[in-house]
Design a protein around this nucleic acid. Structure first.
Length: 1027
DNA sequence: TCGCGGGCTCC
DNA sequence: GGAGCC
DNA sequence: GCGA
């Protein structure tokens, strides 16, 4: 019956596309259209792979050879695939028996126009709050009043697609209860039924058996996982019977026509059927705090109890016990020094010079009850303190200014005493530097370190900012407002132009580059002016029309610049980098800048400007001459509240200044943390990565930990992946562990490993971790539904290959999803070409719209992110409720039809309540009637119309981006999940994961509003790639 | 020393 | 309620 | 393993 190869299918499809719209000339499509253009194209490989597979009866995976029992399946396929691909090239077109792939071609034709071919799209339109009424179904050829760029990835909503859809009944909610059997029972039936049979056995048409078929028959009162289940009916589920005549008509018609579709059916039912539907679903608690959760918490608390709590007390007391190196000591010498170093920190409330004394007693301290420390503990404490010296005690509260004074004294004494010199470049010598750390009232450890380093660089650190004396400002304040507080100014404009203001990162850059000579640094310093653009991104200013990031000609915080210095100067580093200038310094500077592209603050080029087309933006920059920030100060201040909760942006490493001063090779292991991953659009570094070898090794190690999957391993994986990401985005070759250490997310241990890789080219740890069991477990974990523990269990049972599993060696048992996963091991672990995802979606969407033309059906996941290949297909279904109707009940019907038309082949997980507005389905699908088409993972997700934005955001990912944005929401006091963004979420202080109050929904309808509230610059789906 | 996402289904 | 998935 |  299958008459056409996938390749042919694509070819034909492309032909159609071509006819429909000549302008759609996407790369991938061209590739698939013309073999000769790309001999080894994925399409070819793919089809070749299909051929290979055909050599294996029953479409199962090629057997795994004993010796090479690991990933051999894929590898074998891969090799054979390549062979075949070569053959395929020569092997022109075989006899093409043109049979229509699918009668729906006519349908999908129209859809074609709107199918995204490539990543970029201009803006999401899918989230429109005001969906147009569904287009009429008359015109087969779509009027495209949307630019090609517009109708991209996200444009799958019905309001943009003109698909000839049969009018149908509105979704009818099945009214009767089908013999009390709920879905789960059906699922179980099916499981049992299937389990009896060997997974390999040629399955009877699954559509016959699918429990899906019975979905719509139950109006299913939400059982909420009631422990009791109705007695099982072991017989195969019966053929579905739709209760509602109209629906039945449609279905029958559809089926009768053997998916010829488009039966001219009756017009939609108008009456609102069940308005309560949505409300019902809304009633579902957002968070259920099952008592079990609390129990487990209690358990955990109990477990840690003594230790943790005592520790806390200890810590506090430790703090107390610390020698209070406060003002008293410092104040003394204050007078002597006419020098002018100034330090600040900012965001706190009182910008007005706070009385120093107060500082030493923070409110925190006051809160603490008098610590009761046992003698033993006290002793321990003392020990810790002794050895701790370098080891991070909480810094005694001290203001930045006071610390600066103290520092000065210390430096002088040290100099007198031993004449010891820091090896640090003295490039700040003779400069009166005011440092703004972001919190005037409290010199954090990080602030202290930075100040120390600044001193070591020869600066005259000023305790306070005095425009008459201060010659330079260095800042790592998290916001403009914070810095202004440090400076005790109201506006950046008040900073004289002659005072260059640079960010802390800039200092690092200089320290980093030993090749710089003094003069160069000076020149650079004078040229590097903050001009507040570094803050722009954080404040989202660039989103405002009136603000255009501008070179430092800014009046606000500017250099001692002559008027003429404008764009040229500022854009220099960019240009240098772009033109691979021979001027190494610029190159390096630029490189540094790029490397920290994730950093909100990274001089001298603003990230904003960097992100955009440099020439264009530079041009614009030149036009602006008034302070673009002025109007945003208020906003900045307001924002500060939020930002203060951010991870600081300028934390220095841990090395303790007191001690490290003596170390000859003390390096400023200072690193700027980079704000939120989700905030920075970052095009993946293209081209060759100079650190590929390091990445590979780390990746290897990461994979090993992934397989091991212990609780520790889990976080190692997270950690390594962060490092790998950082390395990927690092434009230059990392030359030492120390250098790597400076990247965000790279800690001591990872830096050591990197060092090892750099010096030896290898990583011993890999060999150490890599054992046979790991390989096998990794193999098994590729099976759907198999994680580490099950894989390990099987390994222990004596299974070492997939064949072993198939033979149920050692008496292992597989659940139904696992059996399916094993059966299609190869398919499921192979990514599909984007084309194929599109083709499948094209088949599905019209079927959904046939059920209800007002449905919104969107494809999400990696497809929406524009990836060239997709691991699975995620489809979001929802429906506007303005007419009082919902999509309840649509999913089961759709699934049934998809089974009937052989698109869906296997179910992996069924929604608990398919009638719910919110349901999830997981299964396998393929292109029907395409010979050897692979089984692909597919997920359906239905959500209430009001949550569509959150769901879209959530399911579009990528996962790294998701984590980042969730975390940011979290820190900002919100909670983000696939249902929406919530505020006033109250979390259990003992376990922040526990929500005591699920809060108030503040956004969920569109992605944009969520981005906006979280202050994340809007990013198109394809820009959300982080992993 | 603690947290590192959160919600769902399967069994 | 642990395991697994997304 | 990292960072607070």
């Amino acid at each position: 019956m299958p008459e056409m190869s996938l390749e042919e299918y694509y070819a034909e499809q492309d032909e159609r596309l071509n006819r429909a719209d000549e302008s759609m000339d996407d790369y991938v499509k061209r590739v698939s259209r013309n073999k000769n253009l790309m001999p080894a194209s994925s399409v070819q490989q793919h089809s070749a792979a299909l051929e290979v597979r055909q050599e294996h009866p029953t479409l199962t995976i090629p057997s795994v050879s004993g010796q090479n029992a690991t990933i051999s399946t894929n590898r074998e396929i891969g090799r054979a695939t390549k062979r075949k691909a070569a053959e395929a090239e020569a092997d022109a077109l075989g006899p093409i028996r043109r049979q229509r792939i699918d009668p729906e071609h006519g349908l999908s034709h129209a859809v074609d126009n709107h199918l995204p071919e490539s990543a970029p799209s201009t803006h999401s339109r899918s989230d429109s709050l005001h969906p147009k009424s569904p287009v009429t179904r008359t015109s087969p050829k779509v009027e495209r009043n949307v630019s090609p760029a517009m109708d991209d990835i996200e444009s799958f909503t019905i309001d943009e697609i003109d698909v000839p859809v049969p009018a149908s009944t509105s979704h009818n909610k099945p009214k009767d209860i089908h013999e009390g059997r709920n879905t789960r029972q059906f699922a179980q039936d099916k499981r049992r039924f299937r389990q009896v049979r060997s997974p390999q056995a040629p399955a009877a048409s699954t559509s016959e058996l699918s429990p899906i078929l019975s979905f719509s028959n139950k109006s299913y009162r939400k059982p909420s996982r009631s422990p009791k289940r109705a007695p099982l009916d072991l017989g195969p589920p019966k053929r579905p019977r739709l209760d509602l005549p109209r629906a039945a008509n449609i279905l029958q018609a559809t089926e009768n026509q053997k998916s010829t579709d488009l039966p001219a059916l009756e017009p939609p039912l108008s009456p609102i059927e069940d308005v309560s539907l949505e409300e019902a679903s809304a009633k579902k608690p957002l968070v259920n705090q099952s008592s079990s959760l609390f129990l487990s918490i209690q358990e955990r608390i109990a477990k840690h109890s003594g230790g943790a709590k005592t520790d806390k007390v200890l810590k506090l007391s430790k703090k107390r016990a610390l020698p209070d190196f406060s003002l008293n000591e410092v104040a003394v010498d204050l007078g002597n020094k006419s020098s002018s170093m100034c330090v600040s920190s900012s965001p706190s409330s009182n910008p007005q010079s706070p009385p120093p004394q107060k500082k030493t007693k923070t409110s925190k301290d006051n809160q603490e009850p008098e610590p009761k420390i046992s003698a033993a503990k006290g002793a321990k404490l003392a020990t810790e303190q002794r050895k701790g010296k370098g080891k991070k005690e909480k810094p005694a509260p001290i203001t930045a200014a006071d610390f600066a004074r103290k520092l000065k004294v210390e430096f002088e004494e040290a100099a007198k005493a031993s004449g010891k010199k820091h090896r640090r470049s003295k490039f700040l010598e003779g400069k009166n530097v005011f440092f703004s750390g972001g919190d005037w009232n409290y010199a954090s450890e990080s602030t202290r370190k930075k100040m120390t380093i600044i001193m070591q660089c020869g600066a005259n650190l000023m305790p306070e900012y005095d425009p008459e004396v201060t010659t330079h400002i260095i800042t790592c304040a998290p916001s403009v407002g914070a810095m202004l507080q440090d400076l005790k100014l109201k506006s950046l404009k008040q900073i004289p132009r002659r005072i260059p203001t640079v960010t802390w990162d800039w200092v690092l850059t200089v320290l980093d580059d030993h090749r710089l000579d003094r003069q160069e640094i000076d020149t650079r310093l004078e040229n590097a002016v903050i001009e507040c653009t570094p803050y722009a991104e954080r404040l989202d200013l660039y989103k405002f029309e009136s603000y255009k990031p501008r070179p430092r000609a800014s009046r606000s915080v500017s250099a001692n610049s002559e008027e003429g210095r404008t764009c040229e100067n500022v854009s220099r580093p960019i240009n240098a980098a772009a033109s691979s200038s021979s001027e190494s310094n610029d190159e390096r500077l630029a490189a540094h800048d790029v490397r920290h592209s994730a950093a909100p603050i990274s001089p001298p080029i603003s990230p904003t400007r960097r992100a955009s087309n440099s020439t264009a933006s530079t041009r614009q920059d030149c036009k602006k001459s008034i302070d673009p920030l002025a109007e945003f100060y208020d906003q900045a201040r307001r924002q500060k509240e939020v930002e203060d909760g951010w991870s600081s942006i300028g934390d220095v490493g841990d090395s303790d200044s007191d001690e490290t001063d003596d170390e000859p090779d003390f390096q400023p292991v200072a690193r700027a943390k980079k704000g939120w991953t989700c905030d920075n659009k970052q095009a993946q570094m293209s081209g060759d990565c100079p650190n590929e070898d390091i990445i590979n090794k780390l990746n290897e190690l990461m994979e090993l930990h992934k397989v091991k999957g212990g609780s520790e391993d889990r976080w190692r994986v997270v950690s390594y992946s962060k490092t790998i990401r950082a390395l990927r985005n690092h434009p230059t070759r990392i030359r030492s562990g120390n250098e790597a250490r400076r990247l965000p997310g790279v800690g001591e241990k990872t830096a050591q490993k990197i060092e090892e890789i750099i010096t030896t080219g290898d990583l011993q740890r890999i060999k150490y971790e890599n054992t046979n069991d790991v390989e096998v477990i990794r193999l098994f974990q590729g099976i759907y539904g198999v994680g580490r523990s099950i894989a390990f269990k099987w390994y222990q049972a004596g299974c070492h290959t997939l064949e072993d599993l198939r033979a149920r060696k050692g008496g292992v048992t597989l659940t139904v999803p696992q059996a399916i996963g094993l059966k299609y091991y190869d398919d499921i672990n192979t990514r599909m070409p984007r084309e194929e995802a599109r083709a499948i979606f094209e088949l599905i969407k019209p079927k959904a719209l046939a059920i209800d033309p007002k449905l919104s059906v969107q494809i999400m996941g990696s497809y929406r992110r524009g990836k060239a290949d997709c691991g699975d297909i995620d489809i979001l279904i929802t429906r506007p409720t303005d007419d009082g109707e919902t999509h309840a009940g649509v999913l089961p019907r759709l699934l049934r039809e998809l089974h009937a038309s052989d698109i869906l082949t296997e179910d992996l997980a069924l929604p608990e309540d398919p009638e719910d507005l919110e349901a999830t389905y997981r299964g396998l699908c393929h292109l029907p009637k395409v010979e050897g088409s692979r089984q692909r993972r597919i997920d359906f997700l239905t959500v209430p119309w009001t949550s569509r934005g959150a769901a879209l955001l959530y399911y579009t990912g990528d996962d790294i981006f998701n984590r980042a944005i969730r975390l940011k929401a979290n820190v900002m006091g919100y909670a983000l999940n696939q249902k929406g963004l919530f505020k006033n979420v109250i979390r259990d202080p003992r376990d922040r994961r526990i929500k005591l109050d699920s809060g108030v929904l503040i956004a969920s309808e569109t992605e944009e509003e969520i981005f906006k509230i979280l202050n994340v610059p809007w990013q198109e789906p394809h820009e959300r790639v982080r992993g």
